[in-house]
Design a protein around this nucleic acid. Structure first.
Lengths: 244, 244
DNA sequence: TGACATATATCTAAGTTGCACATATCATAT
DNA sequence: ATATGATATGTGCAACTTAGATATATGTCA
């Protein structure tokens, strides 16, 4: 843009800048189902509704940096797993107080890591997340508490969560995204469980096994899992430098 | 976020808000190659470098709305073809003057429509865009003028253009995105040309033909193209309601 | 020895790819 | 006017690759 155009398009009545936040959709798999970290609001607007944690973007802070800061503030964890920009939501009416544009990020962590970090936080909760496939009946995104009751989502966060799950499903078989939900050593069965939880369908075991091994992302350690009452499965690991 | 946290995270020293812009990556296919609409900067910073057209986001203006406004301002065209949010770039150093976060959009238009609209604009130019595949030699995004000389890109726009082409390639075979680059009636050969230009490879004709027909997106009109010195191909059209 | 889940081998079906050939139209020549 | 060649569209077929299902072997514990 030329300086002239800069001034021209910089309409004085548009002078007040929007506020910028990042919102963090932190997902994991629990009991074979997708779960997301939400926070219940204590004040208006959307009092008692549930929202993804977020924070304002500092004036000298990068977006990824802001997302990592929010993650650290909420879970105490550095961005070890997966952290990726999702989409930017900027409907002028999305927050009734003022104009806030939010850059949504989504993060993935294994349940073990996440629940350990959440022991100290009573204000955050992991809730079950259901996102039907396009065309499926009951087409709305829903988050439900332990009891099973549906939770009300604040702002446009139903849309945000829906976008996050769509992205997760879409990248599942051409990226190593699923491994962010597993510990360093895992069995093929555990990997399949993660895929099934995300996709919401059950998969053919031998075919899944073949596909995963053919991709060349993982390698077997000689070791086997312990404490099973049946034949212990071999433990695999993600090969180094397979990021993305 | 609770009101308490709102105030807490709203650090006073972070009070000045970033500026928000949208940048428009408008692409088309010309002579079997990808081309993008760029504008040469007349002033510092990045004087004489080339940039995607953009504009500030109004305080009461949605992001999609802002992108459509930029499109209309530059080409005089409403968003008839394809307009989709791409990614948000927010490196604090991306603009040396001040903190500007930009939401990049990408738009597609057929060359006929675009060149007609650009007759009146001498400040905008359609330049050849080359984005190598990952791992390919000469791994940098490059834009080149009619003569073939490489153009310098302003700000982080090389990254922006690279991201746009990656998205375009990725969505090519599971969405109807290619049809935004074709007139209402088109031949299968023209559709294949678009695919080959975007992917930068040549495709097998019978296989391509079958794949396209099997997807069920298009339907034959009885009509045939005219003015050929060989067998005229049948004209197809995108079925209604195949958007996305 | 039986129960159980992992792991492997094999068969079948389905889909994809590449090549060859037939078809339709226009241009040119006789 | 008719025949022939050139060119690109459109179709048929065979080889290859991939996915799904079933059956079977393996290893551990009760």
């Amino acid at each position: 843009m030329t300086e002239a155009e800069f001034l021209q398009s910089y309409d004085p009545k548009a002078f007040p800048h929007p506020s910028m936040t990042v919102d963090l959709v932190l997902m994991t798999v629990r009991d074979g189902k997708l779960a997301v970290l939400l926070q219940q609001r204590g004040d208006h607007p959307f009092k008692d509704h549930w929202a993804s944690p977020g924070g304002f973007v500092g004036i000298d802070e990068g977006l990824d940096e802001a997302a990592e800061r929010v993650l650290l503030a909420k879970t105490g964890l550095p961005a070890g797993g997966w952290l990726e920009q999702l989409y930017t939501f900027g409907d002028p009416a999305r927050d009734p107080r003022m104009r806030i544009i939010t850059v949504a990020y989504f993060a993935l962590l294994p349940l073990e890591v996440l629940s350990r970090a959440l022991l100290a936080r009573s204000d955050l909760e992991l809730v079950r997340l259901e996102v039907p496939w396009p065309g499926e009946r009951g087409g709305a995104v829903s988050a439900s508490a332990a009891g099973g009751a549906n939770l009300d989502l604040a702002f446009d966060h139903a849309e945000v969560l829906g976008t996050a799950v769509k992205r997760l499903r879409g990248k599942l078989d051409y990226s190593t995204i699923a491994f962010a939900l597993l510990p360093e050593l895992f069995t093929l069965r555990a990997l399949q469980d993660v895929h099934e939880a995300i996709l919401g369908v059950s998969l053919n075991k031998p075919a899944f096994r073949r596909r995963m091994l053919d991709k060349g992302w993982i390698e077997g350690t000689g070791e086997r899992e312990q404490g099973t009452s049946y034949r212990p499965a071999e433990l695999y690991r993600l090969k180094p430098n397979q990021g993305d």
